[in-house]
Computed example of a mutant assay.
Amino acid sequence: MSSALPSPILEVPAAPEALLAEAGGLKDARAEEVLAWVEARFGARAALASSFGVEDMVLIDLAKKHAPSLRVFTLDTGRLPPETYELMDVVRNRYGVTVETFFPERARVEALESTQGYFSFRRSLEARKECCAIRKVEPLNRALAGRGAWLTGLRREQSVTRTAVEVVELDRDHGGLLKLNPLAAWSQREVWAYIKENAVPYNSLHDRGYPSIGCAPCTRAVKPYEDERAGRWWWESREHSECGLHPVR
């Protein structure tokens, strides 16, 4: 680990800003260095939020080598493609990882579908955000409760809504948690090079033109000239292509 990185300590600073300052040396660190620091600093109190896209698979593989205590959780919206579930099982068997699964609250999903139907999210931006809030945002709040930090596979190159993503961020929406995006500066080419060089398993939908994979009704394959997240909520403007898990400031 480079000398510019912060030294690991065992107690979380009381003030979120102090935690952010402590991790400041990670700004330009390699993904391996970020994960090694997370292991030393948080151990099992840190978790990777995984939708099992290609970036998350890179991080799961790197964590096996550099942050073996890192927990992995996923948000099962109830509408994921079967290929995603198949990959989850591959991950469990290959890496020996327990995938902590968080579902939306049953009563809220039942009320949504009973009163608004099964495709309400296509009616308006507000209706789509309501669906995402029920199926993703609320479960994420429970998934992050009690954590010291969380990691994501966000990259700046993915879309216009992610160009300002930093390797280290302060997640004020969840009480000042440290949020780390180790692949923020990676290109799509670099991600796939790692996958191929390390024989990392990945979602078979990627081979069918799906660079970004979410809920089945809200995801499609993209055209060669489209950006990586053009297949997510494609009926909306590109600046809206987030579900609320990663608010655009």
Score class of each variant (00 low, 15 high):
94 R>L: 10
94 R>Y: 10
94 R>I: 01
94 R>E: 13
95 Y>P: 08
95 Y>G: 02
95 Y>L: 07
96 G>M: 01
97 V>N: 07
97 V>R: 05
98 T>S: 06
100 E>N: 06
101 T>P: 11
101 T>N: 10
102 F>H: 12
102 F>E: 13
103 F>E: 15
104 P>I: 01
105 E>S: 14
105 E>R: 12
106 R>K: 14
107 A>I: 06
108 R>F: 08
108 R>C: 13
111 A>L: 06
111 A>E: 15
111 A>P: 10
112 L>Y: 15
112 L>C: 14
112 L>D: 14
113 E>Y: 15
114 S>P: 03
115 T>D: 15
115 T>K: 15
115 T>A: 14
116 Q>K: 15
117 G>V: 03
118 Y>N: 10
119 F>A: 12
119 F>Q: 15
120 S>I: 14
120 S>W: 12
120 S>Q: 11
120 S>E: 13
121 F>T: 06
121 F>L: 10
124 S>C: 04
126 E>S: 11
126 E>I: 00
128 R>K: 12
129 K>V: 11
130 E>T: 03
130 E>Y: 01
131 C>R: 07
132 C>V: 09
133 A>N: 08
135 R>G: 09
136 K>Y: 02
136 K>R: 07
137 V>G: 03
139 P>T: 05
140 L>S: 06
142 R>D: 10
143 A>K: 09
144 L>K: 00
144 L>A: 04
145 A>R: 10
145 A>I: 09
145 A>Q: 14
147 R>C: 08
147 R>A: 03
147 R>V: 01
147 R>H: 10
148 G>M: 02
151 L>C: 02
151 L>G: 00
154 L>Q: 03
154 L>C: 02
154 L>K: 07
154 L>M: 00
154 L>W: 00
155 R>S: 09
155 R>G: 14
156 R>M: 07
157 E>D: 15
158 Q>T: 08
158 Q>E: 12
160 V>C: 07
161 T>Y: 04
161 T>P: 00
161 T>C: 02
162 R>G: 01
162 R>Q: 02
163 T>K: 05
164 A>C: 08
165 V>S: 03
165 V>C: 08
168 V>Q: 04
168 V>S: 03
169 E>K: 04
169 E>R: 06
170 L>M: 12
170 L>G: 15
171 D>I: 00
172 R>M: 13
173 D>A: 14
173 D>S: 14
175 G>S: 06
177 L>C: 00
178 L>M: 10
178 L>R: 03
179 K>Q: 07
180 L>A: 00
181 N>I: 02
181 N>F: 01
181 N>M: 02
182 P>M: 08
182 P>Y: 14
182 P>F: 15
183 L>I: 07
184 A>H: 10
184 A>P: 07
185 A>Q: 05
185 A>Y: 08
186 W>K: 11
186 W>N: 05
187 S>A: 09
187 S>R: 04
188 Q>D: 14
188 Q>T: 15
189 R>G: 06
190 E>T: 11
190 E>C: 06
190 E>M: 09
191 V>M: 10
191 V>T: 08
192 W>Q: 14
193 A>H: 00
193 A>R: 09
194 Y>R: 11
194 Y>M: 02
197 E>K: 15
198 N>A: 02
199 A>H: 15
201 P>G: 06
202 Y>S: 04
202 Y>D: 14
202 Y>M: 09
202 Y>I: 01
203 N>D: 12
203 N>P: 07
203 N>F: 07
203 N>R: 13
204 S>M: 07
204 S>L: 04
205 L>M: 11
